[in-house]
Nucleic acid binder design. Structure first.
Lengths: 188, 188, 188, 188
DNA sequence: CAATAATCGAGACGGTACGTCACGTCTTCTT
DNA sequence: AAGAAGACGTGACGTACCGTCTCGATTATTG
């Protein structure tokens, strides 16, 4: 019976990877750097992770994500608005950086698309789901609105602006965005 | 006073970069590869581009972008729907690949955010602007809808899905998205 | 703890360096050339030799130097004369080339002065020592002549001519040189 | 009718070359460095000198050499001894550095052997000639001693030691050397 | 006194080699 | 067996110079 995998080593490697990611970002995450910082051998890393994208994804996902709260004010409109304001604030902090790492990972290793969909994106969508259901139940949301589409309508624009023009991701923009999502663009 | 910059060299370098980008993608764009393919010296590339991200951006932007048509059917609703269907189709072809290159560039060199905003994104926004203005003039769009926000509402979700779950970017999804953008999510 | 140094690699690198030195001389000894010829990585060379001068010195010294014979005729005068004739002949062959390499090495890396003094020059001096001792024991050499000085008197002029006017390093010159060393320049 | 060669440029280039040689030695003498320092174009240097060795030789030889004095004490023995002491002292100063440059030049460009033989070495031999002739005339030197050989016997050992073990080039060594050259090594 | 033609500065160009870094694989000893 | 340490071949990095080649600006004759 072989010696089992060393949990101490695994933990140290993931911690080192997280540290490098948050300090210098994805391009600075080298296997040699992680090995040196974690006092691990390179071969140990290669034994358990196929490439640095997988390691980064693992490090990112095993970090304790600070979930973005979804308030429950009784008004779906207000719930969404406040949540999006919190999201855009988090974007300017560490959440944006983490998002960049996630996108970089999926570009280096297409297999990770599924992993992230089943973890990061799933949890984000799940977090918003209760508010959507509350709104539907309270007849504050039209019944034929898909939750998937609604999530994309809220997160898509914010992420697009973050990627292409982060300094325009202002509270006023977020308010205008939410307002337009609520009422649509057709005349009354 | 010195010999002026060689346009032949510049053209060959950009062509080589474009070829490598479309053949193997951004990670395969090495300076040495471009130099070899363009029969240029590495120093010539470094003389004119600070890093490979800038070179990639230049190659991308000097390529003839195939603009996504915006039909003029008389109905803003239908104009947007058809444009988004064309966009999602282009995403599955080369436009998605180009988008990935653009995002990769801005992650490697933050200065390029501005460059892309003033070229790629500006032209995309401008392309949609006439349809928006037509809709507003024809009172098919509520007057207090910002063009910026409307663009984000259409492009943001499509790009988000392309990045995180490209196989779900179906025509049905695009129709549902446009419908929701038009009518909003509030009950009638 | 790590994998020990590969002797195969070390040998191949030194052999490649020797080959380049004897084929094209010191200026043609490039690290990349050695690496290519030895099928080794550049990093492996830099790991073990600080610069190309050290590598050249190592290659030179680990080559099997053909020692210049010192005959034993019973006459110190004749021993020296014949040895110097052999030396000047060797100079015109490969020994002169090797000497140039040695001098080039010590000019590029001053640390190598000591290395060569303790190897190449030491062995040359040692080779001559027995003949000197024989001559002294047989009272064919005045007792207050230093071996160090005698060596310099024989080798210095030959090397000087080799460096500055190699085609004048003729047998007649060597004979005249030895004769003058033996009897001095003062009148009888 | 054409414009003649600019002497100002020639002078500036040689001055820059001399400065670089004495500051950092032959390996630091790059064409680009000389051009920058002399505010000259690279092509101007290549137009008038075939390679850097020729430029270095020209710079060296057009510098005002400080000749090593040859005293006239009435005793050839003493004249030689004092001259050699002055020579070994100069070796430790700039003359040694200049000698190294000269040797480096002839190794890079064999054609320069003749140039140096006709300038540097000729002037050194000529400087010693009067003392030799005085000694011969005064019957302090045996008549069948060749001036060429005598020069080599004095300079060869000193240069050999300078190249291989400069710190052993002491006044005592020089005295012992001269003594042995005078009286030879045979027993009285 | 222009006209003119080689010279000059500047530096762009295609190259070669530099010395460094990280890759992913491997071999060794230690735990 | 698993792990640390790190040597190995490989390949790209960004830099320094090479020697050649335009450029426009600068002169010292000569028509």
């Amino acid at each position: 019976m072989p010696r089992p995998r060393s949990q101490a080593s695994r933990t140290a490697i993931l911690a080192a990877a997280q540290a490098l990611l948050s300090e210098k970002g994805f391009p600075a995450l080298t296997i040699e750097g992680v090995a040196a910082r974690a006092k691990a051998g390179k071969a140990t890393i290669y034994r358990w992770w196929p490439d640095r994208a997988s390691l980064a994804a693992d490090a990112l996902l095993s970090a304790t994500f600070q979930p973005i709260p979804v308030p429950d004010t009784g008004s779906a409109r207000e719930d969404f608005r406040r949540h999006m304001q919190l999201l855009s604030a988090a974007m300017r902090r560490d959440f944006g950086q983490q998002l960049l790492v996630a996108l970089a990972c999926t570009q280096e290793n297409r297999d990770l698309t599924v992993a992230f969909r089943n973890s990061l994106w799933k949890s984000l969508r799940l977090a918003l789901a209760p508010a959507i259901h509350r709104g539907a139940a309270a007849r504050q949301i039209r019944p034929n609105v898909y939750a998937e589409v609604l999530f994309d309508l809220l997160y898509g624009p914010v992420i697009l602006r973050f990627l292409t023009a982060p300094e325009t991701l202002t509270p006023d923009y977020v308010d205008a965005l939410c307002e337009t999502v609520m009422t649509g663009i057709l005349p009354a």
